[in-house]
């Protein structure tokens, strides 16, 4: 059943995975944005946070 829908054969050198590249670039952006949000907004925004013994300003 799995092969029945195949309409043409594409070998390695003809195959240009541009869609995959687009998806992983999107993933890169999403990861970066979510990471920055989680670290700087969710984490650093919800103090108090454990700190070293810094002199109080």
């Amino acid at each position: 059943m799995s092969r029945s829908g195949v309409a043409r054969t594409i070998d390695h050198d003809e195959f240009d995975p541009i869609g995959t590249l687009a998806l992983v670039v999107l993933y890169f952006v999403v990861l970066t944005v979510m990471w920055l949000f989680t670290y700087f907004v969710e984490f650093l925004g919800h103090g108090p946070t454990v700190v070293g013994l810094l002199p109080l300003g």
């Binding site: 984490f43 919800h46 103090g47 108090p48 946070t49 454990v50 700190v51 013994l53 109080l56």
Partner: peptide, 22 residues
Amino acid sequence: PGTNINSMAIPGQVAELTVEFD
């Protein structure tokens, strides 16, 4: 909860964590 104060308390060990309360 609601802060970043979070630690394990393990028998035999002492956790040390310093926090500033503004």
